[in-house]
């Protein structure tokens, strides 16, 4: 072999070793930035639905995020249109809105006005109706519904029950 060939070979050999090493390190670096197992394991919250009052917004916490629970009064239930009815949850004999309290625009917490029965996000001016449907941009879609499973008169957030899977399949909410 000539010198040139020998150096070419050494260069290619180094390139191969370095390439494998670079890909392996990038993989390790990516995985090191992943959420830790302990963070993922703490992702479930159970709510007892007996204590909520009509038209009073309660903020619960799930995965560090606010979850809005709003129990509808009979008048509010009567005023819902078909589009709105698709988004509400029936637990026992009562009707609720349970959504992530984070604006789908960039994640601020919208405020609820019980008199107007509407939400306003103060960050960029988006508004939502009483079921979390968008009524004014910039939010691209209604407030997301967290994964839930209804068990008797309680609801488990973080677990995917039949009702939730149906909402997902119907495109009422996106998975969060």
């Amino acid at each position: 072999m000539t010198d040139k060939n020998r150096r070419g070979f050494i260069g290619k050999a180094f390139g191969a070793v370095a390439g494998v090493g670079a890909v392996a390190s990038l993989y390790a670096m990516k995985k090191s930035w992943d959420p830790l197992p302990s963070v993922k394991a703490a992702g479930f919250t159970t709510l007892d639905m007996s204590g909520y009052k009509g038209n009073e917004l309660i903020t619960e916490k799930w995965r560090g995020k606010p979850v809005f629970v709003l129990k509808y009064t009979p008048e509010m239930v009567a005023s819902l249109n078909d589009e709105q009815k698709k988004r509400v949850l029936k637990i026992g004999s009562d009707t609720y809105m349970i959504v992530l309290g984070l604006c789908t625009h960039l994640g601020c917490i919208p405020g609820y006005n019980p008199a107007e029965k509407a939400f306003l996000c103060a960050c960029h001016g988006g508004t939502y109706d009483v079921t979390g449907n968008v009524t004014k941009a910039p939010p691209p879609r209604g407030l997301d519904i967290p994964p839930f499973k209804i068990v008797g008169n309680t609801i488990v957030l973080g677990e995917e029950g039949e009702e939730y899977k149906k909402l997902l399949a119907d495109g009422i909410t996106l998975s969060v």
Partner: peptide, 13 residues
């Protein structure tokens, strides 16, 4: 987003 944060929300990670 969760990868960048290392959590569902901005937290310790």
């Amino acid at each position: 987003v969760e990868w960048i944060r290392g959590d569902y929300v901005p937290a310790q990670a």
